[in-house]
Simulated scan of single mutants.
Amino acid sequence: MPGLYLLALLVSAAGIAALDARFRLAFWAAPGRTAGAIVLGTAFFVAWDAVGIATGVFVKGDSPALLGLDLAPHLPLEEPVFLAFLCYLALVVDAAARRRVTRRRDPATRSAEAP
């Protein structure tokens, strides 16, 4: 089914955004910094993909789940969406891990929290 992969990416991003909003981990804690990191990270990885495509290392596979729109040869629309999702997910996971480590090290914050 065309577009299934893009839909899965968007649903996954919405789930991560819901967790982010609930716990104020990345975007809801620092929207400008998070947006900047996502844009820079996505641009870096798209450039990386472009080099891989130009050298013949990366090629677009055939999948009925892809929408069928290419931004460039061997660069489907879903690729930058995936890369942005990957960057956002990494920021949320990093923020959650840092918060967890901080709370484990600081007993004052643990006693203030509900069990």
Score class of each variant (00 low, 15 high):
residue 62 D to G: 11
residue 55 T to L: 07
residue 102 T to M: 07
residue 26 A to I: 08
residue 33 R to M: 12
residue 43 A to Q: 08
residue 37 A to D: 01
residue 43 A to I: 03
residue 63 S to A: 14
residue 37 A to I: 03
residue 21 A to R: 12
residue 15 G to P: 02
residue 55 T to Y: 03
residue 19 L to I: 08
residue 29 A to H: 12
residue 24 R to D: 06
residue 108 A to G: 05
residue 57 V to C: 07
residue 81 V to H: 07
residue 62 D to K: 11
residue 40 L to P: 02
residue 55 T to M: 02
residue 66 L to P: 05
residue 4 L to R: 03
residue 23 F to L: 14
residue 58 F to V: 06
residue 36 G to K: 00
residue 49 D to F: 06
residue 90 A to H: 02
residue 81 V to P: 00
residue 69 L to N: 01
residue 42 T to W: 07
residue 98 R to F: 09
residue 16 I to T: 12
residue 101 V to H: 10
residue 14 A to H: 13
residue 80 P to S: 09
residue 71 L to V: 02
residue 89 L to T: 06
residue 43 A to R: 09
residue 78 E to H: 04
residue 45 F to G: 03
residue 27 F to P: 00
residue 59 V to A: 15
residue 46 V to L: 07
residue 99 R to T: 06
residue 66 L to C: 04
residue 42 T to E: 04
residue 17 A to W: 10
residue 6 L to H: 10
residue 51 V to P: 03
residue 69 L to Y: 04
residue 104 R to N: 12
residue 49 D to M: 08
residue 91 L to S: 09
residue 13 A to F: 03
residue 67 L to K: 02
residue 75 L to G: 02
residue 87 C to W: 04
residue 13 A to Y: 07
residue 30 A to D: 09
residue 98 R to A: 07
residue 84 A to Q: 03
residue 20 D to H: 01
residue 85 F to G: 04
residue 26 A to D: 03
residue 89 L to I: 01
residue 67 L to Q: 09
residue 86 L to S: 14
residue 66 L to F: 13
residue 38 I to G: 09
residue 109 T to D: 10
residue 70 D to V: 01
residue 31 P to C: 14
residue 64 P to A: 15
residue 86 L to Q: 14
residue 107 P to Q: 07
residue 78 E to N: 00
residue 7 L to M: 12
residue 80 P to F: 07
residue 83 L to P: 01
residue 24 R to T: 11
residue 1 M to Y: 13
residue 68 G to P: 08
residue 16 I to W: 15
residue 3 G to P: 04
residue 94 D to I: 12
residue 82 F to K: 07
residue 103 R to F: 10
residue 26 A to P: 13
residue 18 A to S: 09
residue 60 K to P: 01
residue 90 A to M: 09
residue 63 S to R: 05
residue 94 D to C: 14
residue 12 S to I: 04
residue 60 K to H: 04
residue 27 F to H: 05
residue 42 T to Q: 04
residue 86 L to W: 05
residue 19 L to T: 05
residue 104 R to W: 15
residue 85 F to I: 02
residue 14 A to V: 08
residue 40 L to C: 14
residue 32 G to R: 15
residue 84 A to T: 10
residue 106 D to P: 03
residue 106 D to I: 06
residue 70 D to A: 07
residue 110 R to H: 08
residue 74 H to V: 14
residue 29 A to C: 03
residue 62 D to A: 13
residue 15 G to W: 06
residue 7 L to G: 13
residue 64 P to G: 15
residue 70 D to F: 14
residue 34 T to I: 11
residue 7 L to E: 07
residue 87 C to D: 00
residue 15 G to M: 08
residue 67 L to M: 09
residue 23 F to S: 15
residue 62 D to P: 10
residue 50 A to W: 07
residue 16 I to E: 01
residue 83 L to F: 08
residue 56 G to T: 13
residue 68 G to I: 10
residue 32 G to V: 15
residue 115 P to C: 09
residue 18 A to Q: 13
residue 92 V to R: 00
residue 13 A to P: 04
